[in-house]
Design a protein around this nucleic acid. Structure first.
Lengths: 218, 218
DNA sequence: ACATATTGTTCTAATTTAGTTCTGCTATTA
DNA sequence: TAATAGCAGAACTAAATTAGAACAATATGT
């Protein structure tokens, strides 16, 4: 099967051919995908040809043909399955409540398997999840308050702009928005009173991505 | 027969390819099935390839393809699903999701009994509850954001400082902090851009008190 | 046919991401 | 106790991605 870039390019090629009737040039593709050089497009196309998703004539301009597309499940089937599973999956499930997050201790170290937090099962499908109690006000501008419970999806990777549990120097866990900047990582608090931290990527481990939030008013 | 981990991994790979069109990386797989190291994934994949459930291109990243799926689930997985069905009957309760709150319409008028919102049973004992989707930013300074779901306990009274669903002139329902001032009532938004409204108590009916809040980040 | 513009190919090299291998720990079982 | 399976963690190897430039083949207009 395909890598994400290969998939993106294949979709673009297919869409363009469908819409315009002719195949995009390498330069158009590199712009569409967001590359600065078309050599990368060449490599992606070679891979797609090798995997039999594309066919082409060598040295012929705009001669690509889409052989097949990765078959996504038709949405009607997805809907059907969702409905059928709904009854089963709407149940509550308990996930571990690991304690408070703000600063100081890696999460594994304070893991206490006894405490649990109940969430609807459908919200924690497709991954491993845990809950944390928020301590402090470093994220108030995104509506994450002291005392809130956040549900975190375990992951060692994240996208730019995600709110993550980041472990710094194997010793300090914090909840912050993350952005990559070359070989550095920015940990961005959402409160004007706090400052963004810029750290080499090697000092920061991602322990999970914010998935949902729960707050009680009693 | 497959081991539980093998079964889970195979299902995850199949689901991911069907949904996204591209193959997950070892790191994504380890997060999804709850391993901390990808060496375990390697072993599982080797086993699945050997048993002809998976196929891959040698020396290519993200090249897995699902050959077939097992007919039988490992018994431990069956057990787990049974347990979950049981949990469905025990722990969960659904409350009506009445629609959006911001302004304009009394809640009863837009009540749609079809939509439900699942919450842990313990959190909605001792009263009648319903859920609303927040629309607008008039409460952002208390961490209540556009799109959040709030759980409201039905009540016609409230304490000073409570956040309530208030019905003004039988026509307009809003979520605001409430304060009594003699024969008047203050409806206080929590956003500097909005102004507090002061109304005679006779024009304001309380429809419920904010009990908890839920937010999803996906 | 000629000149010129487009388009596709190749190469080098740096960086990031992904896959493989190995070592050792732990719990289980014979 | 020894054997084994499963997994964590690190070290290592390999592939994918990206950029830049040079170049080759093709297409186009005159």
């Amino acid at each position: 099967m395909l890598t994400p870039k290969q998939y993106k390019l294949l979709q673009y090629i297919n869409k363009t051919i469908k819409e315009t009737g002719c195949c995009p040039s390498f330069d158009e593709m590199k712009d569409a995908i967001g590359l600065k050089s078309k050599s990368g497009i060449h490599a992606l196309i070679e891979a797609l040809v090798e995997r039999n998703f594309l066919r082409k004539l060598p040295h012929k301009a705009r001669s690509l043909e889409v052989v097949r597309l990765p078959k996504l499940k038709p949405s009607s089937i997805v809907e059907e399955e969702k409905k059928r599973e709904q009854a089963l999956l709407d149940a509550m499930i308990e996930i571990p409540l690991y304690g408070k997050i703000a600063a100081g201790t890696p999460i594994e170290a304070i893991a206490n398997e006894n405490e649990k937090f109940a969430v609807p099962y459908e919200t924690v499908r497709g991954g491993q999840f845990y809950a944390l109690t928020v301590e402090g006000d470093s994220m108030v501008d995104m509506g994450i308050l002291n005392g809130d419970t956040v549900v975190i999806k375990k992951s060692s990777t994240a996208n730019n702009g995600d709110i993550v549990v980041a472990l710094v120097d194997d010793s300090e866990a914090t909840l912050k928005q993350i952005k990559k900047e070359g070989s550095n990582v920015l940990l961005i608090p959402k409160n004007a009173a706090y400052e963004t931290r810029k750290l080499p990527a090697s000092r920061v481990k991602i322990q999970g991505v914010l998935s949902s939030l729960y707050r009680s008013y009693f």
